[in-house]
Structure formats: C-alpha cells, structure tokens
Amino acid sequence: MGKYSDSTEWEDVDPIPQDDGGPNPLAAIAYTEEYSEAMSYLRAAMAKDEKSDRALGLTEDIIRMNPAHYTVWLYRADMLFTLQKDLLQELEWLNKISLKHIKNFQIWYPYHVPQAGKAEAYGLRRHHRQVVMSHIPTIPPTETAFLALMFAKDVKNYHVWSYRQWLVRQFSLWDSELPYVESLLQSDVRNNSAWNHRWFVIFARHMDPTKHSIKNGDADSEVPPEIIEREIEYTKAAISTAPQNQSPWNYLRGVLGKKGMGLVELKSFAEQYADLEKEDEVRSSHALDFLADVYAEEEQKERSGRALELLARRYDPIRKNYWNYRRSLLGLKQVGA
C-alpha cells in the first residue's frame, strides 16, 4: 500500500527496493515508508531511463522529502531539457521549494541535520537553478525579488551569493547592483558578504575571471581614480559608524592597494580611533593594526611596535603570537603574556 503502488499511473512499473542485504527496518516510521516507496519507483524509472511527466512528478516528490539527493536533481534536469519543458515554470517551482526549504527541514529532519547535508541541498538547488537559467535568454523579472527573499532569510548564505555573482555576470546586471549592495550595508554594516560583493561589482566588472585575478584586477581596464576616491570615502564613512568592524578595514586596504599607494595617506583618519597616547580610549583594534603599518611605512619602528604591543597585551591578546611576529619583523622583542 502506498501512494505509488496504489496509483494506476504507475501500475506498469515494478518498483526496485533498496538492496541492503537485510530485513527492511523502515516500516516503523510513516514518513520513511513514503520516502522508501518513492525511491523504489525512482530506481525503476531510472533503470529504463524513462523521461516522462509522471517521472518528473516523482522527482518533485522525492526532492520535497530530501532536497540533498543529488541523483534526483540530475535526472530531473535531464528530463526537463529532453521533454522541452517550460523553464520559467521550473523556476517558479524552484522558488517555491527554496523558500520553503528551512521549514521543510524541520518537518523532515526530526533532529539536527548534519551540516554537510544541508549545505549540499543548498548547493544542488543553486546548481539546478543555474543550469535552468543558462537556457533562458533574458533574466525573468521575478528573479531579483526571489533573491531578496532568500537574503531576507539569511543574508550571508554563501550559495545565494555565489549564484548572485554568476547572475550578475550572465545578464550584465552591474548598474543596478551597487545601490543594492549599499542598501544591504546600510542595514548591516558588518555584513562581510556584502563588502565582498561591493568589491566584485566595482573591480571585477570589466574583467574575465577566468583570465585575470580578481584580487589584482585587469591591467587593461583600470578603474578611474574618481571611483577609487569614492570608495575610500564610502569606506571611511562606514568605519566611522562602527570602528570595530574588520570588513571595511580590509576593504580599505584593498582599495589603497589598487591605487598603488601606501596607507600613510589615511594616518590621521585612523588615529581618530586609536591614539597611542591614550591607551584607554582605543576604539578599534583594526585601527591599531592599520597604524602599526602606517608607522612602519614611516620608519617609526618604536611607534609601530607600541601599536603592536597594545594589540598583543590588551586589545587582541588571543593572537599574541601573531602580533609578536609582526614586532619581530621590526626587530623588536616579544611582549610577554
């Protein structure tokens, strides 16, 4: 008895049960019974390489129960293209299950899901989406709204970000992307994923990622100096709202590197957040780190060493060995525990 064994649509098929060489222990759990039955019909359908509407329905059913089963996804994609299905409709379905995903996990996984399985499910859906989307000539109007909903659930989801970068490149969405990044940073200035995306939108725009390094950019299409200036000012403003935030400090170093200049230009900016003469009033360990490099550039070894000492002793002691290593590069002795 079951959804498929009772169905006239599937009566010509002999299900192929899982062969584990032992008694089947699954019967005790209702959900498991349903899953196990669907899988036995999947095996039978795949064994004869069936490509049909009913088999598509079957994959949908299994994905609903277990979105991390990669074979089902591959089989489904294969059928979609062979049967020349409406891909926009497929996207719509994908949207629905992606947004339900978190809730589904609670229904289907009674316990904590091993992380690997959860990540795998995200990855598989993202890949399926990319495969489908690469067969669609223009971006469907619903796509950015869908991504906004995904980010509303988890704005740091690595798979969604990776897909978004692919999408931006695929459909050349560069112009609308910067305002979007800014809105994300406005709601959370500590969102490192958004900072990374900002870098991507500005510096990876005119380059082929398979030929040039994102880090260094493409020498043939240098970013105009006014954009570099704008980025420096934007980042400084972001730091002023939350000085103890590593993402913009990293970003600032990256931009200054692009400009091919040292950090010294921003010395007085950084000193607002860390004055070596007022040890108790340091507001940012990242500013101390930045200043240690500034002073080293200026050949002020003692001053640089003093910033590193404050980090090792007081503001970031868990990384004492790292700061001491930096001191040793200046020829200074270690700071004790």
Partner: peptide
C-alpha cells in the same frame, strides 16, 4: 585558477570573485 580565486583580504573563495571562506 586558484590564484584567480584569491581575494583582496588575503583569503580565497569558491570561485573567482566569491567571498573568502
């Protein structure tokens, strides 16, 4: 290819341009 996955912050991502992880 790996060098193309290197980022401005010193880390590497899943593909060129992706966040360090």
């Amino acid at each position: 290819y790996i060098q193309n996955c290197a980022n401005f912050d010193g880390g590497y991502g899943v593909s060129p341009g992706a966040e360090s992880h």
